[in-house]
Design a protein around this nucleic acid. Structure first.
Lengths: 216, 216
DNA sequence: GCAAAAGTGTTCTTGGTACACCCATGT
DNA sequence: ACATGGGTGTACCAAGAACACTTTTGC
């Protein structure tokens, strides 16, 4: 497997909100190098399709999710010390409810969600990659609608706000200002449905006005 | 030269302010493919150093400039239709006054500055790359000090403002507000020197408080 | 009727924009 | 003295932050 022509790989940081926390999909490595550690899903690029398509394919393979947000992050070199290599990192935002993880029993490369705040030391330079991905998502939350990737078609304002807070790392936002901003920006719109659950007033359901990336 | 293992290249969008316009360094291609067109400087990556170092080396080779701003932009695939390939694009901001272009007489790969507003059709997808680079620089102008890369150690406020206006595409800014913002942000500070030129009050010289990238 | 979350407006603060006059110099 | 660019302050406007009470439901 070792040679002196560069190896090209794509890796994907897949985010979802689970238990009101921002979590990343990682796979446990049973094989060398870096056996016994967690790593981002990825694979060698064979050039048969574009990089974007390869990353999207990887994402579908791991999660089965289609209606997602996917963006290129940056490219690293020198991760594999046995040969020249570059890794093109992407990040994706998926709705946890729509995900079905690969899980053949006894699978050698077990996937699992881990909260970004409590990551162990990962294989290669993956901690660094995830850190940059989180930073990017946080920044874009302010001036785009990318949160649509993390939520189902319909959701309550509480769920939306909880998503925002999870991404921002637990910092809590003012409910009224949050609502005003979201509706004022026309990033979401009310539907005529409500959801009843528990002993309190039903929550109106909202949807994103558009499920494609939009800059505010 | 054709093979089915991926080729990895770095390319660099080198910006400078010349004649109060934002210009890009391009090289004229005399060889196939795309002979007779202009293209961004770049080269095959041999893996002997990091991608960042390779891009920095390319930059020095073309301009001789050292104290510059260099940032990775993004990575493209499929530019070369003869084999799988990826190109990692960078952009750089250099002080035109510190640049010495390569120019052996009769050089086959002539470098030249071209204003970003008046580019012909370039080789590969280079127009796209430059477009993205310009967009990124414009955005970062608002919340970072990256303009330091385009200016010498000391400069007048007029020069700084002219630089900003060139990047923003000719849109003119209010002098008083501009000064207030730059000094208020502590992104620049006055020196005790002035520059006399012409029949008017001498201009105070300023410098960047720090010549490393800083977010505001 | 009470607990629990949903829904709603106003005030204050802050940052950005618009705008006009005096200053120092060379000729 | 006049032409040329350098230097300064204030009033307005819009967006974000702080903040408390009423509504609807299930039990």
């Amino acid at each position: 497997m070792t040679s002196d022509t560069p190896a090209v790989a794509t890796i994907v940081v897949i985010f979802a909100i689970i238990e009101e926390r921002l979590q990343v999909l990682l796979v446990h490595r049973d094989a060398e190098p870096e056996a016994g550690t967690w790593a981002l899903p990825g694979g060698v690029w064979d050039g048969s399709q574009s990089l974007d398509a390869a990353a999207a394919a990887k994402l579908v393979e791991e999660t089965g999710a289609g209606d997602v947000y996917l963006e290129q992050l940056f490219t690293q070199s020198g991760l594999d010390h046995t040969q020249p290599s570059v890794a093109i990192a992407y990040f994706a935002l998926v709705d946890a409810g729509a995900v079905r993880l690969r899980s053949e029993p006894g699978d050698a490369w077990r996937p699992a969600w881990l909260p970004v705040g409590e990551l162990p030391r990962l294989a290669f330079a993956n901690n660094e990659v995830i850190g940059q991905a989180v930073e990017r998502v946080r920044a874009k939350l302010d001036y785009t609608n990318i949160a649509y990737g993390l939520l189902p078609e319909r959701f309550t304002l509480r769920e939306l706000q909880s998503t925002y807070q999870a991404i921002l790392g637990g910092e809590s936002l003012d409910r009224r200002n949050f609502r005003k901003r979201m509706l004022g920006n026309a990033v979401i719109e009310p539907t005529d449905e409500v959801r009843r659950e528990g002993a309190h007033r039903p929550a109106r359901l909202y949807r994103f006005t558009t499920r494609e990336p939009v800059f505010l």
